[in-house]
Amino acid sequence: MLGKITAKDDFWNIKNLTRDDQLAGHRIPPQLMGIIPQNTAGFGDVEKAARVFVANELEPLQESLLELNQLVGEEIIRFRPYSLDDGGAAPLDPTK
């Protein structure tokens, strides 16, 4: 019986470490992924985490992808401005 409990605990620890490694690799704050904190302190303000994630991770990635427009000579990639005020990204304007 002891071996089964140890194996279950090992699996639980490996699963949690794998989850944490995936989050770290993708650099996504856990509160944006719906992860439930394991401690009573929580993860902090989700809005602040979202703003930092967008500024430090998402916008630089978008800027890199927008360079393809210059290489091709026309707009083939466009992103909506990110906003937390209106529930997410603003709709794309098809006239632009």
Rank of each mutant, 00 (worst) to 15 (best):
G44C: 05
T18G: 11
L66W: 00
L65W: 12
P91E: 04
L32I: 06
N69E: 07
P30N: 06
K48V: 09
E67Q: 14
T95W: 02
R19Q: 14
V52R: 13
A89K: 07
K4H: 05
D45S: 15
D20Q: 11
K48R: 10
E59M: 08
W12T: 07
E59T: 14
A55N: 04
N56K: 13
G87P: 07
R80E: 15
A49I: 07
D21N: 11
N56C: 02
E57D: 08
G73F: 09
T95P: 00
L17K: 08
E59K: 13
N69Y: 04
P37M: 01
G87Q: 05
V72R: 05
S83R: 09
L66A: 03
E57A: 01
L84Q: 10
P81L: 03
L23M: 13
D20F: 00
R78S: 10
L68S: 00
A7G: 00
S64M: 11
A89N: 15
L17Q: 12
E63L: 10
L92E: 06
A41Y: 05
M1Y: 07
R51I: 14
A90K: 13
N69L: 04
D93I: 05
D45T: 05
G25K: 05
I36E: 15
D86C: 09
A55K: 07
L17E: 11
F11Y: 14
D86V: 14
S83A: 07
P94H: 05
L66T: 02
P81W: 01
L92D: 04
